[in-house]
Computed example of a mutant assay.
Amino acid sequence: MECSREKGGQIMEYENLVDNFLSWAKTEEAVQAAIMIGSRARTDVPADRWSDLDILLITDTPGLLLDSEEWLGHIGAYSITFLEKTAVGGSLERRVLFEPDLDVDFAVFTHEHFTNMLSLDEVKLVFKRGYKVLIDKIHIHKRIEVIDFAKENQSSVQPAAQQYDNVVQDFYYHAVWTMKKMLRGELWVAKDCLDDNMKSLLLQMIEWHAKAVNQTEPWHNGRFIEKWADPRAVQAFIHLFATYEKEDMHRALLKSMKLFALLARETGAHLGCAYPFKAENKAFNFVEIHYSQLL
């Protein structure tokens, strides 16, 4: 695999990558359509020097693009490539670091898969924020719909009472579970739950709170969370993560629980959902009572 910093005697830029990609894709039968999304296609929160390049590839032979790296050589020299699940749409993407340090995500979809996912609100929201058709040999771009933000905010899909209750109960259950792992000395497992599972549940509540209480539109997977989350949550973020040490993990656990409780109570009140105070009290009591045993 060639790993030169240069192609054609000049350092590669994203514009060069797109030009090289188009030169290859226009005559490549496997590529039926290519659509740029993300920061390099957006008008709000546009790309900066650290932004990557996101391209959707529509093909009826995904194996040619996912199982092989050979086609990347037509675009430029690269040093790293691997496969990963897409953040939205439930497919796979080939992620590539082209020289000198240009990261590109090629999300690969079959024609049928792409057409089916266009009905999802999260996908419509991605396209609402901006997209650019690079190639379309099958006129699939005509099927793309975007969310009307004004209409979407008026009839925003919020959790049902059962879903809300399940997330709150799940969070507090794992607060107790994490504390038990800490007490057993299983710090890796405890920290993994605290910083992964519990943070995912906290993020879900932050999103619901933003829409229900503050009437703001959250981005997926915590993107630009500092811009749309409640300011009190943003101020608390610095306290939510711990070092690999029992006492500091206990501190971060309590801070995470207190922020979750604040947001969950307000969200429940705005949505008309009953807040499970019994679960909150049980979790806080357990975490606080057993603190001395960590020392």
Rank of each mutant, 00 (worst) to 15 (best):
F98N: 00
R232C: 08
T178N: 00
P276C: 06
F21I: 03
F109C: 02
R49K: 11
V167P: 02
L57K: 01
R232L: 11
Y14Q: 04
P100Q: 04
N221W: 15
H141I: 00
Y14W: 05
P218Y: 03
S4D: 12
K7I: 11
F21M: 09
L203M: 13
A233Q: 02
M117T: 07
N214A: 08
Y275I: 02
V168E: 00
S79P: 08
D54Q: 03
Q10C: 15
T216R: 10
C193S: 13
A236S: 15
V213D: 05
E247Q: 11
E112H: 11
W24H: 05
Q204S: 09
Y172V: 04
A283P: 04
E84A: 09
N153D: 06
A107S: 10
L263Q: 06
W71M: 03
K85S: 15
V123Y: 02
G76L: 00
L259T: 07
E93I: 06
D248H: 06
M117H: 05
F260D: 00
Y291F: 09
D52M: 06
I147A: 14
L271M: 07
E93T: 09
L120F: 15
V18D: 02
K199H: 15
H250I: 04
E93V: 09
E217P: 01
E217K: 09
P159D: 07
K124D: 05
R232D: 14
L72I: 08
D105F: 06
H141C: 06
S292G: 06
F260P: 01
S200K: 14
A175I: 11
Q169E: 07
K132Y: 11
S256F: 01
I58G: 01
M198H: 04
F284H: 02
M36D: 05
E207T: 08
V96S: 13
D48Y: 02
Q169V: 13
A261V: 08
F149C: 12
K85G: 08
N153C: 11
I147H: 07
L194W: 00
R265Y: 08
S292E: 14
V168C: 04
T216D: 12
N221D: 13
M179V: 04
K246Q: 15
N116H: 09
R40H: 07
F149W: 15
H290A: 07
H139K: 13
H250T: 06
E207I: 06
P62Y: 04
K132F: 09
W24R: 00
F127Y: 10
D44P: 11
L271H: 02
D192Q: 10
K211E: 02
L72T: 06
A190W: 00
L134D: 00
G76W: 04
A274H: 14
P46I: 08
L102N: 03
G89V: 02
V234G: 02
I147P: 04
T243P: 05
V96I: 14
S51P: 03
A160R: 10
T61D: 12
S200R: 13
D192M: 12
K181V: 01
L57W: 02
L72R: 10
H74M: 09
Q162D: 14
N16L: 09
T115G: 07
M249G: 05
Q204N: 13
G268L: 03
F106I: 03
T216P: 04
G130V: 02
A229L: 01
S292Q: 08
W71K: 06
L83C: 11
